[in-house]
Amino acid sequence: GEDLPLPPGWSVDWTMRGRKYYIDHNTNTTHWSHPLESGPSSG
């Protein structure tokens, strides 16, 4: 998808195989999909 801006506290990194993933430092979790690309989340 597009390179959307990341929310505060997020960063992007790549695996050893070159796969892009996103790090949420607020909750110390990692995600394969961009936080703003996922569907609407409630709460």
Rank of each mutant, 00 (worst) to 15 (best):
H31V: 03
M16W: 13
S33V: 14
P8Y: 06
G9P: 01
S42P: 11
D13R: 15
G9N: 07
D13Y: 14
G39V: 13
E2H: 09
G1L: 09
H25F: 08
D13N: 14
H31L: 03
N26H: 05
R17D: 15
W14S: 09
G18Y: 04
H34Q: 03
R19D: 13
G9F: 04
L36S: 09
T27F: 04
I23D: 02
G18C: 10
E2D: 11
Y22K: 01
G1Y: 10
T29C: 06
P35E: 04
L4T: 14
T29W: 01
G39T: 13
D3H: 09
K20M: 09
L4R: 08
P5V: 08
L4W: 13
W14L: 10
R17T: 15
T27Y: 03
D13A: 15
P7Q: 00
S41N: 10
S38L: 12
N28Y: 05
P35T: 03
L36N: 08
H34M: 05
G1P: 09
S42T: 13
H25A: 08
L36W: 09
P5F: 07
G1M: 10
R17P: 07
W32R: 03
D24N: 10
V12G: 05
P35F: 03
G39D: 09
S42N: 13
V12W: 10
Y22N: 00
H34V: 05
P8E: 08
P40A: 12
W14I: 14
G18L: 04
T27N: 07
L6I: 06
S38I: 12
T30E: 07
H31K: 04
P40H: 11
H31E: 01
D24R: 01
S38E: 13
M16F: 13
S11Q: 06
P5Y: 09
T29M: 05
T30L: 13
E2I: 09
R17H: 15
I23Q: 03
W10K: 02
W10V: 01
G43C: 13
G43R: 11
S11D: 09
Y22I: 00
R19F: 13
D13H: 15
T15P: 06
S33Y: 12
E2S: 11
I23W: 07
T27K: 05
Y22M: 00
R17F: 14
W10Y: 01
T15K: 03
S33R: 14
G39E: 10
H25S: 08
G39K: 13
H34S: 05
I23Y: 08
T27P: 01
N28G: 13
W32Y: 06
H25W: 12
P40E: 10
P5W: 14
T15H: 06
L36E: 06
K20L: 08
L6E: 15
Y22V: 00
P7K: 00
S33K: 14
G1H: 10
R19C: 15
N28K: 08
P8Q: 07
P7M: 00
L4C: 14
T29G: 02
N28W: 05
T27S: 07
Y22A: 01
G9D: 02
D24F: 02
P5D: 15
S41V: 13
R19I: 15
P7F: 00
M16Q: 15
S38G: 10
K20S: 02
T15V: 04
W32P: 04
W14E: 11
T27G: 02
N26R: 06
S41L: 13
G43M: 12
Y22L: 01
L6G: 00
H31W: 11
K20V: 09
D13K: 14
N26T: 09
P8F: 06
W14G: 07
R17N: 15
M16R: 15
S11H: 07
G18V: 02
N26G: 05
R19Q: 13
H34I: 06
L4H: 08
K20R: 08
G18P: 01
H31F: 06
S11M: 05
R19S: 08
S42Y: 14
G39R: 12
S42R: 13
E37F: 11
Y21W: 03
L36Y: 09
M16P: 15
D3C: 14
E37P: 07
D3Q: 10
N26E: 06
D3E: 13
R19T: 14
P40Y: 12
L6M: 05
N26A: 08
E2T: 11
Y22G: 00
T29F: 02
R17I: 10
G1D: 11
Y21N: 00
L6S: 00
I23F: 07
S11N: 05
K20Y: 03
P8H: 06
T30M: 12
P7T: 00
D3N: 10
G9R: 01
N28F: 04
P7V: 00
E37S: 12
H25I: 05
L6D: 15
I23L: 06
D3G: 08
S33D: 10
S41D: 09
H31R: 08
T30G: 03
V12T: 07
H34D: 02
D3A: 08
N28P: 02
N28C: 15
T29L: 04
S42W: 12
T15L: 04
G1V: 11
G1N: 12
D13S: 13
N26I: 08
W14T: 14
H34N: 05
E37T: 09
E37L: 14
D24E: 02
K20G: 02
P5C: 02
G1Q: 10
L6F: 02
G9Q: 01
N26D: 04
W32K: 03
N28V: 03
W32A: 04
W32N: 03
P5R: 08
L36T: 07
D13F: 11
M16Y: 14
I23T: 07
K20A: 06
V12I: 10
P8L: 06
W14D: 07
G43S: 10
E2V: 10
N28M: 07
S11L: 04
G43K: 11
N26V: 08
H31S: 09
L4D: 09
P35I: 02
L36I: 06
G18F: 04
H25N: 09
S33H: 15
Y21F: 12
W10N: 00
W10M: 00
D24M: 01
N26F: 06
P5L: 12
P40T: 11
I23H: 04
G1R: 09
L6P: 15
R17V: 12
G18A: 03
G9C: 14
H31Q: 07
E2N: 10
P40K: 12
P5G: 09
V12P: 07
P35Q: 03
G39W: 11
I23N: 02
H25G: 08
Y21H: 01
R17Y: 15
D3P: 08
P40M: 13
S41H: 10
G43V: 11
T15G: 05
L6A: 00
L36A: 08
G9L: 01
T30V: 14
I23R: 08
Y21S: 01
D13I: 07
T15W: 05
S33L: 13
N26P: 01
G18D: 04
P7W: 01
P8T: 05
D3Y: 08
G1W: 09
M16A: 15
M16N: 14
S42M: 11
P5H: 09
P8G: 03
D24P: 00
G9V: 00
S11W: 02
D13E: 14
K20E: 05
S41Y: 05
W10L: 01
M16K: 15
H31T: 06
D3K: 08
G43D: 10
G39F: 13
G43Y: 11
R17Q: 15
P40D: 13
S38V: 13
L4E: 15
N28S: 07
P7I: 00
I23S: 03
K20W: 05
W10I: 00
H34G: 03
Y22S: 00
P40R: 11
L36H: 06
N28A: 07
W10S: 00
W32V: 04
S42K: 14
S41Q: 14
H25R: 06
S42D: 13
R17A: 15
P8R: 05
E37Q: 12
L4V: 12
E37A: 13
T27R: 04
H31Y: 08
S42E: 14
H34T: 04
S11V: 08
S41P: 14
S41I: 10
P8V: 06
T27A: 04
P5E: 15
R19E: 15
D13Q: 14
P35D: 04
G43W: 11
L36M: 12
T27V: 01
P40L: 12
P8N: 06
P40W: 11
S42F: 14
L6Q: 03
W10R: 00
T27Q: 04
T30Y: 14
R19W: 10
I23E: 02
P5T: 09
H25T: 07
D13M: 13
G9K: 03
H25V: 04
D3T: 08
W32S: 04
L4F: 13
T15S: 06
N26C: 04
E2M: 09
S38D: 10
P5I: 07
R17M: 14
D3F: 08
I23C: 04
S38T: 12
W32H: 03
W32Q: 05
T30I: 15
L4Y: 09
G39M: 11
